[in-house]
């Protein structure tokens, strides 16, 4: 699978950086409430593609970074991301057999789990609000799986194919 990893090594950090930028891009409030969770999406994609490379250790690091930037309780996103990426690692062979729609559904479910875990931890925060967790973002994240996985796959294969042609 990893024919020539140094050809596309930049794709993983690059897409993660893009995800972080998207996540913290200033959006109007109504849009913000339905925006997909780009960080979860990209992390899950790479966990599914390269489970040996993007382990839950990396998920932990990504989550802590996100906690630091968002000023949420340190470990909140880390815990949720670790759990979700661990689930993907457990079932990655099965998930890969799915059609893209089934994968999208699975991703929506995982994202919902992520939000619920985050919300559960959020309740420990003394100054947490009381708004219920939103289901819409998980759904939107699932829908965004389709274009994102296609795009990243294309990029990956594009940068893989170049050395073959030469």
């Amino acid at each position: 699978m990893l024919l020539n990893p140094d050809r596309y090594w930049w794709l993983i950090p690059g897409s993660l950086l893009a995800a972080f930028l998207f996540q913290f891009w200033p959006l109007p409030q109504p849009l913000r409430a339905v925006a997909p969770d780009a960080i979860v999406l990209v992390t899950l994609y790479w966990t599914l593609r390269k489970p040996q490379l993007v382990s839950s250790g990396w998920a932990f690091v990504i989550g802590v970074l996100r906690d630091g930037i968002e000023a949420s309780p340190l470990g909140m996103h880390a815990l949720a991301l670790v759990v979700v990426s661990y689930l993907v690692q457990l079932f990655y062979q099965r998930l890969r057999m799915f059609t893209v729609w089934q994968q999208a559904l699975a991703v929506a479910g995982l994202c919902e789990l992520y939000l619920l875990l985050g919300d559960w931890v959020h309740l420990l925060d003394p100054r947490s609000g009381t708004e219920p967790v939103l289901f819409l973002p998980a759904l939107v994240t699932g829908l965004c799986w389709l274009p994102l996985s296609l795009l990243l796959r294309q990029l990956e294969e594009g940068s893989l194919r170049t050395p073959v042609r030469n």
Partner: peptide, 15 residues
């Protein structure tokens, strides 16, 4: 392992 670490962080952050 990372999950334990995350929980530990949360615990420290809480207490």
């Amino acid at each position: 392992m990372p999950a334990t670490l995350a929980l530990l962080l949360l615990g420290i952050g809480y207490y």
